[in-house]
C-alpha cells in the first residue's frame, strides 16, 4: 500500500541502487507530504540508510530520480539537511561541540569565507535548543553518545533547512535523550519542517511518527502510520521471522489499547 500525495515535498521515482552490482534498493516510488514526521522502518539490510543516502546524492543511482521541492537536489541544497550515523565520524577529532555545530552554517557562509559572529550566535542558540549550552567548548570525544547525537542534531538545526534526513538518530542514546530528541523533532514539524528518520524500533515507531515507510529492499508501504501499521504489511516487511512476528502481534494489541499518547 503506497499512498502518493499531491504537491509532495519529496518525490522518489523508480529508484534503484546497487552496491557492486548487487541491488540494495529496487524500484522505490514514493512521495512525502510537507510537515510530516516520517519514519523509515525495516529489518537490517533493508536499505534504510541507503535510501536517504541516495536521496542526499551521496551514492550513485542505478536508475530513477529524486526531486525535493519539485527540483533537483543541487538547486535546493541549502534547504535540505542531513544527519549521518554517529559512528560515521571520528569523535577523537580535535574539535569542540561548538566547532561541529558551526559546520551547519558552512553552506550559508559561502566558499572561501569564514564564519562570522552571527553564525556563532546561531550555533550557540542551536546548542541551547538541544540542551548542550554548557558543553559548547567541550572536546567532542568527552561527550556521551547521546550528547554527541544531540551535537549532530544541533548542527542540522543550525543549517535552518526545510527538510531533514536523519540516519538512526536514536542509535545508542538513553531513554531520556531519545525523549528529548523526539520532542525537538516534533517541535520542528509543528513549525512546518519535514523530518525523515531512519528507525528500527517497531515499538516506538507507532507513537513517534505520523507517516511511515516500510522498506525491505522494495518499498512495502508508505502512508500515515495508522494505515501502514497492519499485521499484513509488517509481516510482508519482516518476512517470516518468528520473533519479529510475535512482536508484531504485541504491537497490534497495543495499537488497540494505546499506552502512549501521540502528543504531536
Amino acid at each position: 500500500m503506497i499512498i502518493q500525495v499531491p504537491n509532495p515535498i519529496l518525490e522518489v521515482h523508480d529508484l534503484t541502487v546497487a552496491y557492486h552490482r548487487k541491488p540494495v534498493l529496487w524500484g522505490v516510488d514514493l512521495t512525502l507530504p510537507a510537515g510530516s514526521l516520517t519514519g523509515i522502518i525495516g529489518p537490517n539490510g533493508a536499505g534504510k540508510s541507503t535510501l536517504i543516502k541516495a536521496i542526499m546524492g551521496l551514492i550513485p543511482l542505478s536508475s530513477g530520480f529524486v526531486k525535493l521541492f519539485g527540483k533537483d537536489l543541487d538547486e535546493v541544497r541549502q534547504k535540505v539537511s542531513y544527519v549521518p550515523q554517529r559512528e560515521s565520524v571520528d569523535w577523537d577529532f580535535p574539535a569542540s561541540a561548538l566547532d561541529v555545530v558551526l559546520m551547519g552554517r558552512y553552506s550559508q557562509i559561502g566558499l572561501f569565507k569564514r564564519p562570522r559572529k552571527a553564525d556563532k550566535e546561531v550555533a550557540v542558540e542551536c546548542l541551547r535548543k538541544v540542551g548542550l549550552q554548557n558543553f559548547a567548548n567541550r572536546q567532542i570525544s568527552q561527550l556521551s553518545g547521546g550528547q554527541q547525537q544531540r551535537v549532530f542534531l544541533a548542527r542540522a538545526l543550525a543549517q535552518d533547512a526545510d527538510i531533514y534526513f536523519m540516519d538512526e538518530p536514536f542509535a545508542g542514546v538513553d531513554a531520556a535523550t531519545e525523549a528529548a530528541i523526539i520532542e525537538i523533532l516534533r517541535n520542528m514539524t509543528t513549525s512546518g519542517k519535514t523530518v525523515v528518520v531512519v528507525h528500527h524500533d517497531l515499538q516506538s515507531a507507532v507513537t513517534y511518527f505520523n507517516w511511515v515507510l516500510l522498506l525491505n529492499m522494495r518499498l512495502v508501504a508508505s502512508g500515515p502510520t495508522e494505515k501502514v501499521f497492519t499485521q499484513d504489511l509488517l509481516q510482508e516487511t519482516y518476512g517470516g521471522k518468528l520473533t519479529v512476528l510475535a512482536k508484531v502481534g504485541d504491537l497490534l494489541e497495543k495499537q488497540q489499547f494505546p499506552s502512549r499518547e501521540d502528543k504531536a
Binding site: V80, S88, V89, D99, R155
Partner: peptide, 15 residues
Amino acid sequence: LVTTFDPSYAAAIGF
C-alpha cells in the same frame, strides 16, 4: 575542516 571531519555531511551540503 568539514571534508576531513565528516565527508558525508560535507558532500550533503554540497562540498
